[in-house]
Simulated assay, not measured.
Amino acid sequence: MQALTILRPGEATLTEMAMPSPQAGEVAIDIAYVGYCGSDLTSYRGLNPLVSYPRVPGHEIAGTIAALGEGVTDFTAGQTVTVIPYFNCGTCHACTTGRPNACVNNQTMGVQREGAMTGRITVPAAKVLPVDGLPLRDLALIEPCAVGFHAVRRSGLQPGETVVVLGCGMIGLGVLLGALRAGARVIAVDLSDAKLEIAKRLGAHETINAKGDVRAAVTALTGEGPDVVIEAVGAEATFLQAVDMVVTTGRVVYIGYAKAPIAYDTKTFITKEIDIRGSRNALPQDFSDVIDCLKANPGAGDLIVSRVASLDQAPAALAAWDADPGAFTKILIDLRAG
Rank of each mutant, 00 (worst) to 15 (best):
Q23H: 10
Q158R: 14
E26Q: 15
Q112E: 15
V131N: 13
H59C: 08
L4H: 01
P130I: 05
T329E: 05
V246S: 02
A199W: 03
L240S: 13
Q23Y: 06
A188W: 10
D138V: 08
V131C: 08
V111H: 02
P20H: 01
R137D: 06
R153M: 12
D190W: 02
Q107T: 15
T82S: 13
L221C: 14
D74L: 13
V308Y: 11
P9S: 13
L41I: 06
V214I: 14
L157D: 11
T64H: 09
K127R: 01
D334G: 07
D30Q: 09
L136F: 03
L176V: 12
E197H: 09
M245L: 11
A12D: 04
G133I: 00
A327V: 03
D265G: 13
A337E: 15
M245A: 01
D132R: 10
G35E: 07
R215E: 15
D334V: 07
D322P: 03
A232C: 04
D190I: 10
L335I: 15
G174D: 11
A327M: 01
T329H: 03
K259R: 13
A194F: 05
G156K: 10
L196K: 06
M245C: 01
E16I: 12
L240T: 04
I187S: 03
V308N: 03
R185Q: 11
A18T: 08
G10S: 04
K200F: 09
E114N: 11
I333F: 11
D312M: 08
E143K: 08
M19V: 14
G78R: 05
V163E: 02
E161C: 03
E231H: 03
P159H: 09
P261Q: 09
E197T: 10
V56G: 05
Y33S: 11
A237S: 13
C37I: 13
T73Y: 06
M245D: 00
R154I: 14
P315D: 09
V229E: 13
R280S: 12
R113P: 04
L318Y: 08
T248Q: 09
N105G: 10
G38C: 09
T76Y: 07
C145W: 11
Y53S: 03
V247Q: 11
K127A: 14
R280P: 00
C103A: 08
L141Q: 07
L318Q: 04
G35L: 07
T122K: 01
A194I: 05
V246Q: 04
T97S: 14
D138I: 06
T96S: 13
V111W: 02
I6D: 03
A327W: 01
E206P: 02
D74I: 01
A217L: 12
G167N: 01
T108P: 00
T82I: 12
V290S: 07
K295P: 01
L177K: 03
A242W: 14
P226C: 03
R277N: 04
A140H: 04
R307M: 12
A237K: 14
A182N: 05
V290T: 10
I187E: 02
E70M: 06
N209Y: 13
T76H: 13
N106S: 13
G160L: 01
G46P: 01
P261V: 10
V186Y: 00
D30C: 04
A66K: 10
A12T: 05
G10Y: 10
P135T: 10
C89R: 06
T122R: 00
A320L: 05
